[in-house]
Computed example of a mutant assay.
Amino acid sequence: MSTVRRAAAMTVFVLGASFATRACYADDTITLMVGGIDKIIYLPAILAKRLGYFEQPGLDVSVVTEPAGVNAEDELIAGAVQGVVGFYDHTIDLQSKGTEVESLVQFASAPGEVELVAASHAGDIKTPADFKGKSLGVTGLGSSTDFLTQYLAKKFGLARSDYRLLPVDADKTFINAMRAHRIVAGMTTEPTVSELLASREAKVLIDLRTEAGTREALGGPYPAGCLYMRAAWVNEHPDAARKLTHAFVRALQYIHTHSAEQIVAQLPRSYYQNRKALYVGALGAYRHTFSTDGRMPADGPRTVLGILSTIDPSVKATDIDLSKTYTTAYLDDSEK
Rank of each mutant, 00 (worst) to 15 (best):
E195L: 12
V204Q: 06
S194D: 10
T245F: 00
D169W: 12
A231E: 13
A212C: 03
T188F: 10
N176S: 14
I206Y: 14
M187H: 09
K243D: 13
E211K: 07
T173G: 06
E201F: 07
I175L: 04
P167M: 04
M187W: 07
A212M: 07
T210R: 01
K154A: 15
T189C: 11
E236D: 15
K155V: 08
V193E: 09
I183Q: 03
P238T: 02
V184P: 03
M229Y: 06
R230K: 15
Y228M: 09
H237P: 06
N235V: 02
Y222K: 04
G225Q: 02
T210E: 03
D169C: 09
A159S: 15
T188W: 08
D169V: 05
K154T: 13
G213K: 00
L205R: 08
H237G: 05
V234L: 07
L158G: 11
A159R: 14
G225R: 01
A159G: 14
H181P: 05
R164D: 15
L208M: 13
A159H: 15
P238D: 06
R230F: 04
T245H: 01
T214V: 02
K154L: 13
D169S: 14
A232R: 11
K155Q: 15
F174C: 02
V234W: 08
R200C: 07
L196C: 09
A217H: 07
C226S: 13
M178K: 00
G225M: 00
P221E: 11
L227R: 02
A232H: 10
N235G: 09
V193L: 05
N176H: 11
A180F: 10
F174V: 03
T189S: 15
W233P: 11
Y228K: 03
R164G: 11
H181I: 01
D169K: 11
F174G: 00
A224P: 03
D162R: 05
N176Q: 14
V168E: 02
E216D: 11
R179M: 10
R200F: 03
M178E: 02
N176A: 14
Y222E: 06
T188H: 07
G220A: 06
E236M: 09
S199C: 08
L227H: 06
V193I: 08
V184T: 14
R179Q: 13
H237K: 06
A217G: 10
K172L: 13
T210L: 01
T188M: 04
G213N: 02
T214S: 04
I206D: 13
R164Q: 15
G220E: 06
N176D: 15
K203P: 00
T173C: 03
T189V: 12
E201P: 03
L165E: 12
A232F: 08
D162L: 01
V168P: 05
D207K: 06
A159Q: 15
G186A: 08
M178F: 02
A185N: 08
G213Q: 01
L205K: 08
F174L: 00
L196Y: 08
S194P: 08
R209C: 04
G225L: 01
M187I: 15
T210F: 00
K203Q: 14
G220L: 03
A212E: 14
P238R: 03
A198C: 04
S199T: 13
R242E: 13
E211Q: 10
S194I: 05
Y228C: 06
G157E: 13
L158Q: 11
L158A: 12
E216M: 05
V234D: 10
V204S: 08
V168S: 02
